[in-house]
């Protein structure tokens, strides 16, 4: 190494007092933890969605039951509001850390290469940021569609089954298309994301790398299959 020393800015000592979330590694950990909270929700949400195959009554009953979790300790929909708060906090933390790191990365290379080999890493790894934006846009649409009902053609909060069936009707193919794209984006995001999160949280062996890759593939494929089965079933008339 060569020992030129053009020290600039505050000394290292001043910097270490900054809290862990100000550091790139700390922000990455925040992203991993919040990402995992979101994944756990996605798994539970998918399990609930699959009730659509049991029938309208079962699905609607499940949706009503969600509002009564914790009763009589919690007020009506009390649990749902707790969950919404936690999920919103996780999403805000996740997107904040992602944005902060993306801005940092851009600042870290002010002069670009004239000749740059395409990044060799997986497509999933390269599309984390834009894929995340697609997921975020979809999440907003999805809440307005099936939670509040504003963008749903039926929008009947008492009968979610009917809302779902109306949503994926063949003439609303663009909704199904957007939904499909978003689900695939989530799958891709988690194919890299789960593997990445495991290393971010301290996985450090070759065997562990292989297991993490396997787990990430399982999560990605499982979630995609589960979420895509619903619109597919409605479109093909299996559910209606």
């Amino acid at each position: 190494m060569h020992w030129t020393n053009r020290s600039s800015g505050p000394s290292v000592g001043a910097v270490v007092t900054a809290s862990a979330v100000r550091s790139t590694v700390g922000q990455k950990m925040l992203m991993a933890v919040s990402g995992i909270v979101l994944v756990l929700f996605l798994v539970a949400h998918m399990a609930g969605n699959l009730k659509v195959f049991v029938g309208a009554e079962s699905f609607d009953h499940y949706a009503h039951w969600l509002r009564t979790i914790g009763a009589p300790l919690l007020p009506d929909s009390g649990y749902l509001w707790i969950q919404r708060t936690v999920l919103t906090a996780a999403l805000v933390a996740h997107v904040w850390a992602a944005t902060s790191l993306a801005l940092r990365a851009r600042a870290a290379r002010p002069v670009r290469y004239a000749h740059r080999r395409p990044v060799q890493g997986s497509y999933a790894a390269r599309t984390m940021r834009w894929g995340g934006v697609i997921i975020l846009l979809f999440a907003v649409f999805h809440v307005l569609d099936l939670t509040t009902g504003h963008l749903n053609p039926v929008g009947d909060r008492a009968h979610p089954y009917a809302n779902v069936v109306a949503d994926f009707a063949p003439e609303r193919w663009y909704v199904t298309l957007f939904y499909t794209l978003a689900v695939l984006a989530v799958g891709l995001h988690l194919w890299h994301g789960v593997f990445s999160a495991v290393r971010t949280l301290g996985q450090r062996t070759a065997v562990g790398e292989r297991r993490a890759r396997l787990a990430a593939s399982a999560v990605a494929v499982g979630l995609c299959a589960g979420y895509l089965s619903v619109p597919f079933a409605v479109m093909s008339g299996l559910v209606g």
Partner: peptide
């Protein structure tokens, strides 16, 4: 971080 390097994304 202080030197201006970016953060790792496990790419």
């Amino acid at each position: 971080d202080e030197a201006g390097f970016g953060g790792c994304t496990n790419t």
